[in-house]
Nucleic acid binder design. Structure first.
Length: 474
DNA sequence: TACATTTGACCCCCC
DNA sequence: TGGGGGGTCAAATGT
């Protein structure tokens, strides 16, 4: 059957994370199904097997492209866009698309970018990413909101959190893209700038216990730059978590301004941490050391969270996404974001031009990062979300201080503290073992302060804001 | 030919 | 003090 065939393809594909099956079902669902013991499809199994591919290189399979796209979308949708998809998904058995990307207006720039994006046919992206991604990103970056939203609610109201979610999709897309791109010749990927605007080189990947996702290790390619980051991606290709270590001792590399074409601006590709990139790109703030900052965790997984449970229950986090980078405020910024996500490809495209080595060199040049003129961006302000803390669905700002795998649940548990100085409230979040899509949040203590306002406007809103300025100060 | 990614293996840290 | 696990290294592989 068709499915089988695809599965096969999947297997062949190195990227375990992206089960081709996605087309049929989202990975998460598959997982869920697996957990439930009711394997949704044969695919699930296959997928599993595929998960740990041995060095198989991706070959840009013709077939794959479509599938990939689809998957990406699905994933994306799943991630961010829960809204549309939610209904559909829920209603449908098709888990594949958890969320569908909402069609949103895209700025011209975005459109152009998209258009430029090579692989992704305009068809795909434009609809998906451009629309959502941008908006989402902006939000995301704002803070990594984790919203606990009911599945349905998710996107209905594009609230911040939602937006974040949305962004996710974009990210997801980006990620997917990223990954796909990875599939691209290695060289092409090399040192490619991520959304955060920095260039990263993958130096390792490992399956971490308790984590469903493989963890990838990246180093900043800038000479002498100690910054490293760990990226965990969900099978969907979504970034489950990103942790930065160290601070960049250099400004962001300028995005290659090669062609005037839209791509240019985004030279970056997502390393897999697409998120980061988003910010950076958008933000272009030279300052952004966002990433660099000690450790930031971005969880996007949550995006999928479904039902927001009250404190105790299973809370679904939309996603915790902390974009390292700044977020674009407003939808416009989105463009960039969305782009960014997609940009990978675009970026790649652009970068392809240059020899990898050059790319690296370009990094060094980064000093001007901010300027990148990629026309792409609209001067939108990008707010950098502070990676340190994020406003979660519960409306409070939390800082992740640990993660651990607890018995009884294969999923890692993340520990958060309320960032309010006087507040001792803590909570830990973990995926429900029975329902990977659901997050269980347990709170300890009571807040002795009011819930921080969430600003819709990324820039202004966060006190913590990650606005570049603030960060810098920090 | 050069370079990036993959991945098994090793090292070190923490419990 | 030992074991487990995370993080890093480096050869192999592929583009």
């Amino acid at each position: 059957m068709e499915v089988k065939e695809e599965e096969r393809i999947v297997i062949a594909k190195p990227v375990a994370s992206r089960p081709t099956c996605s087309r049929f079902k989202s990975f998460s669902e598959l997982l869920a199904g697996a957990d439930n013991a009711s394997p949704p499809n044969t695919c699930s199994e296959n997928v599993v097997s595929a998960i740990r591919p041995k060095t198989v290189r991706f070959k840009p399979m013709v077939n794959r492209a479509p599938s990939a796209v689809i998957s990406s979308q699905a994933e994306l949708s799943g991630i961010g866009v829960s809204n549309l998809s939610d209904k559909a998904l829920k209603s449908d058995v098709k888990p594949t698309v958890v969320y569908k990307p909402l069609a949103k207006l895209v700025s011209k720039t975005t459109a152009s970018l998209l258009a430029n994006m090579g692989n992704f046919s305009a068809s795909n992206q434009p609809t998906l990413q451009p629309t959502e991604a941008p908006a989402q990103h902006a939000n995301q970056e704002k803070k990594n909101f984790r919203t606990q939203v009911s599945p349905n609610l998710h996107q209905n109201t594009p609230s911040h959190g939602e937006t974040d979610q949305i962004s996710e999709p974009s990210k997801a897309a980006s990620q997917n893209i990223e990954e796909d791109p990875k599939m691209l010749p290695a060289a092409a990927n090399a040192d490619r700038p991520s959304y955060d605007g920095y260039n990263w080189r993958k130096y390792g990947q490992k399956q971490v216990k308790g984590s469903e996702y493989p963890r990838s290790y990246y180093k900043c390619t800038h000479p002498n730059c100690p910054v490293k980051k760990k990226v965990e991606r969900s099978f969907d290709g979504q970034i489950a978590e990103i942790v930065y270590k160290g601070e960049h001792n250099h400004s962001k590399p300028q995005p290659p301004k090669r062609n005037s074409s839209g791509n240019q601006g985004f030279g970056f590709t997502s390393d897999g941490t697409g998120q980061d990139t988003n910010n950076s790109l958008l933000s272009k703030n030279p300052n952004e050391k966002n990433e660099g900052s000690e450790e930031r965790v971005e969880n996007q997984n949550e995006i999928r969270s479904y039902a927001p449970l009250s404190y105790q229950g299973k809370a679904l986090l939309h996603y915790e996404h902390v974009t390292t980078g700044a977020l674009n405020a407003g939808g416009t910024s989105e463009n960039s974001i969305g782009l960014s996500g997609e940009c990978e490809e675009g970026s790649k495209v652009g970068e392809d031009d240059q020899p990898r080595s050059k790319r690296r060199k370009s990094e060094n040049q980064s000093s001007e990062v901010g300027t990148s003129g990629e026309g792409i961006q609209e001067p939108r302000v990008v707010v950098q979300s502070s990676n340190d803390s994020e406003i979660m669905g519960d409306g409070f700002r939390w800082r992740k201080y640990g993660q651990k795998v607890v018995k009884g649940n294969p999923n890692p548990r993340s520990y958060y503290r309320c960032t309010s100085q006087k507040c001792n409230v803590r909570k830990h979040v973990e995926r429900a073992s029975d329902d990977p899509r659901a997050f269980v949040t347990t709170y300890e203590g009571k807040h002795n302060h009011e819930m921080p306002l969430r600003n819709t406007n990324p820039v202004a809103s966060d006190p913590d804001s990650n606005s570049p300025a603030t960060k810098d100060k920090r």
